[in-house]
Every structure is written in C-alpha cells, then in structure tokens.
Design a protein around this nucleic acid. Sequence first.
DNA 1: GTGAAAGCGCTAACAG
DNA 2: CTGTTAGCGCTTTCAC
Lengths: 342, 342
Amino acid sequence: MKPAKAPKVTIRDVATASGVHFSTVSRALDPARRKRISKEVLELVEETARRLGYQPNRAASALRTGRTHTIGVLVPDITNPVFPPILQGIEASAAARGYFVFVANVGDPQLARPILARMQAQQIDGLVMAIALRDDPLIDFVRDNGLHAVMVNRADESGRLPAAVSDDRLAMKLAVDHLAALGHRRIAHLAGPQNVPTGVGRRQGVEQAMHDHRMKPPRVVECESYSREAGQQAMRTLLASGPRPEAVVCCNDLVALGAYDVLREAGLRVPEDISVTGHNDMPLVDMVDPPLTTIRLPHRELGWRAAEMLFDEIEGKSLSASTVVLRPELVVRASTAARNAS
Amino acid sequence: MKPAKAPKVTIRDVATASGVHFSTVSRALDPARRKRISKEVLELVEETARRLGYQPNRAASALRTGRTHTIGVLVPDITNPVFPPILQGIEASAAARGYFVFVANVGDPQLARPILARMQAQQIDGLVMAIALRDDPLIDFVRDNGLHAVMVNRADESGRLPAAVSDDRLAMKLAVDHLAALGHRRIAHLAGPQNVPTGVGRRQGVEQAMHDHRMKPPRVVECESYSREAGQQAMRTLLASGPRPEAVVCCNDLVALGAYDVLREAGLRVPEDISVTGHNDMPLVDMVDPPLTTIRLPHRELGWRAAEMLFDEIEGKSLSASTVVLRPELVVRASTAARNAS
DNA sequence: GTGAAAGCGCTAACAG
DNA sequence: CTGTTAGCGCTTTCAC
C-alpha cells in the first residue's frame, strides 16, 4: 500500500540514504556535472534516488538558477484551427527538450500586457507569440524587458524578433497562377485585416502575381477579421460594388466559406459561376460543398521550428536563422474550374 | 529610455525604497494580510512597488509555500476540435483565478506517466485530465500521489475523481428519438472504442433508447478510434455484414464523415437512402454535404466547470459537486430525413 | 502594526 | 572527486 500523500523526498533524503553529502547528490543527478563523480557513488545515488522516488523540485532550482524550463505561448484564439497544430509543434519540441508550455488565449489584444506580466512573474524562460499586430508595441515591450521571444505564423515586418512563418506571397501566387491557368483574368481578393502582417503580405502577393500575369489590379475588399462572418460581409460588399469577378482569392478558408454562404444566397454556383480559393487547408474543407481549393501550410512544423529557435536562444546556442520561411502548397479541389466551364 | 534588461526588483528593493522592513512589504502586497497594515504604510508601499515596477517572483513564493498557481492539463490530441474549446474554458477560468495552465499533448497513453512525473517536478497544484481509459491505473496513481485532479469530457465510471462531462446517454437518446420520429426502425450504431468511457456510454444510450421505442437491438460496429478513417472502416463492415439499415447513429462527427465517404463510394445517398447522425457538432459540419445532423455539447463550459472544481478543491473550498453533468442538445440538419422520403 | 530571523530545496563557488 | 557554505526571493513564525 502506498502512502496517502506524496512524502516529498528531497535531495537531502537521497544523500543520507546513500551516505554522501547532499551536494554530491545534486551533482550526480545533473547530466552536465555527473561526469565528475566516481562511478560507484554515481550508481549508488541514482539507485537510491530511484528507490526513494525522488523528484527534483523545479521551483527550488528555478529560484536558484533563474531558469524555470517554462515558456509562454500567446495565441489569439485557440479554437481557430490553425493554432492547434502550431501548438502541437511547439509542445512536441518543448517536451523533447524538457520544457513546459503555458498557453494563454489572448482574445482581446488589450489583455496581452497583463497576461505577459503574470507570465513574467512566473519566471518564464521565453515566449512564443502567435499574436501581434503590425508594428505592435508589444514587441518593443518584450525586447526591452530582455525576454527571449520568437514569433510564429505572423512575423514582425521590422525583423525585431526571430520568426517562423509561411511564405504568404508565394501562397497567393500559387492561387493566382492556378486561376490564371484555368483562364481567369478578372480576379478579386477578399483580403485579411490590414493591421495584421499576414493580411498585408497576402494582399501584396495577389497583386504582385496578377501584375506578373499582366492582369488588371484586383478588386480588393478588406475583411474585418479572419472569420466566416467577415467573409460573408466582404463578399456582399464585393458583389454589390461592381461587375462579378470570375474568381475570388480569399485570405483564408473561413473567409472563403463565408463567401460560399453569400454566393449561395445570391444563387451563384461555385465553381461554375465563380471560382473560390482559400488559405490554410483547415480540417474538413475537403468535405464542404464544393470541396475547397486552398493553400496548405506546414503548421505543425511552423510551431516546431519557432520553439526550436526559442530554446536555442534561451540556451545560448543562438546560431539559428533569424527568420524561417516555410513553403506553402496548393491543394486543388472542386471550388475552382476553367473559365469556359459555365 | 528603458533599461536593456529587466533589473529584477525584489521585495527588499521596495522595502528600502520606502523605508520599511521587507517583511512589511510582503504583508502589504498580499491581499489576505494587507488589512493588518496601517493605511499610510500600505499606500506608500503600493506606490513604490508600482514605481519600481515590482513583479513578485513566483518561483520563490512557490518554494516557500508549495503552491505554484499552476495546473497541468492532459489532452489526447489537441488538433481534435473538441479539445480547443475545452481548453479555452479551462484557461479562462484559470486566468480569472490567477492560475496558469500547462498543456500537454499525450499522443500515446504510454507517455502519460513520464509527462505527469515532469509536471509533478514542476510542482503543479492540480491536474485536469481529458484522457483516461476505463479503469485507467493512471487514476489510482494520481490519487495515491495526493494530487488534486478532475476529469473532463471523459468520466471515470468508478467516480474516483470528480468530473465534468456531457450526458452521453441522453445525447444518443436525442438522436434515436429524432430518427424514431422520422419513422426509422432499423437503426445501426457505429460505436466508439469500448475501452473509453464515452464509447460505452454512448452505445448504451443508443441501446436503451431503442429498447424504449420497442425497436430491435441495433447492429453495433465498434470503431478503433474516434477518427474519420475508423468511421470508414466501420461503415464498410456494417454494409458488408447484413441488410442495409435505415439510419446510422455515429459516436462522433468524424466517424459520421467517414461513413459519408463510404456511403458515397457505395452509391448511397444521404439522407435519401440512409440517415446519418453525428456527435459533437464540430466546426464546419454544417458546411459539409449534406450538413450533418448532430449533437452539440457545451465544450467550453465543460472545461470551465472542470477547472472551477479543481481550483475549489486546491483552495480547500471543496463544496462543489463531485460530478457535473451538462446537457447536450440535438441539432437537426440535412443528413436525416423521413423514412418514406426515399 | 512592524521588525527580526529562519528556512523552503536547490545550485554554485570555494576548499580540501 | 567530495564536503562546506552561502544564498536565490519569498512567507511565516515569533518578538516587541
């Protein structure tokens, strides 16, 4: 029968039980210093530690060393399906390197500062930010506090912080190239919020790609957010404000689905009357009607790479690239069709 | 211009700056003990603390008090869309009560123990478990270690741990009642893994409800997991092994979508040839073809309630119910139709 | 109401 | 190679 409560065995208990000084135990149990211990003592200590069920107290170690093996992650909305794979990547890297991850959902940007303050009180070793507006003062705040930090998914354009991102311009080029190959010329863009780096990058990607194809500049409607509702609203605005485009490139999948809603209301068929593309390849967009042509991102790897960069920096082996740009990939499904299909 | 690195101001700095003893500062800054401090001193201390940008060091406090204001959450797969809202609920409650949340993705059940050990080393105050098989030894382990813990989403049948769950039997009754009202009698069930509490509960719910309607017991095929692939496989088995049912009640949405895949392959139409129901109402199942009739769960509230129970227990005000059962809700869409529709 | 002193469990000089 | 010693920043007696 086991004891009712964990009896908290400390380094001293292990020491007396194995007849050595407690600092010897401390050394023996630290991979970095264990080599300076004689083989016999080392084995003895390890054995008794195991037998007694010793668990190091990280709080004590943290107080002494200033390192908690803990990082914070700031996400805007964990229910947005792009973030779970990113988090998974971060967490996998953290687990592999002996860190733990505090996840905070920063619904309202106003909350970022207080949350960050509390995280600092918890003595986090570093921070992964999946939030941040363009020129966000938060970035300066983080740097001024000497906090190790990296960004993921969204990059800070000024490069003040290392980042792991997908190539937004390439992503949109892939979409436009695909539509161009299908014969479309009048392409519109439902753009993301222009105060967010990805919103700008993707819009520029569309514009650049269309320019390269010698098309007229796209009609652009900015969405208020990356949501289905915002997509509906933007699509309504687009339909109301001019001739119907042949295709519409959307800043993300949710916006594309919002566009679907409005097009259906308006009696327009996708892709016969109008082609639609998304971005993210979130789960189930292959099951919607019609299956959505979109851009797939290596979300999990984005998270993994961001975390690796952060840990390297924390541990002082900061050789890693300052910005990692990963390649997105076009996934063709049934929401795009050749122009003369109608 | 701000200092390059945070100069870590401590309680002593605040003390000398305000000309009092550091223990007075400690008292003044603790809501629970601040009342014993004279008004003038209190205000002075608060003011200087603010001026110096004092941040309490939780690691020190943790070492002294044994409380870290940190909890761990074990989820099987954060990319499964049921978990993000649960996490969000947990995190919202935690933020409101001054706690932080370690999230660990326990892909392989084998990993649970080592992860838990590491969390204990980090001195977590409590644990929320969204994993656990039936009669999982992990539950005993947690209790024997005197760890405060609650379960969420999946309950331990033996009631060894408090839990916040949805009423699985009711959920399946809602589905069966709905199908019965549409005139169906030959209903099959694609069941969840029978080593998981929810798998059993839902199967029993279907069986009980059908019994109550005086129907013959359902044909049941067990899925290997709660995934689309497992749903495909189970649906294949079902079609191959007997007469075609009029309706199939699925243990969750992903399984239902797997069933869609196979029915489409087989040239069967949903709902004309066969009605299908899901469970969870995950994002976008209203956009698939046809939109899925399913059961909606209060996932966010599940997480919130679980966390609240945990914090109450940690803080010793353990008046809360031991098990909270929340009501699921039927969402009728287009994957179910009356029997004579065909 | 405030000061003094001890110590949580650990690491990191410094001796020997 | 191992023992000694001194704190990390905080809370918590115990005095006054």
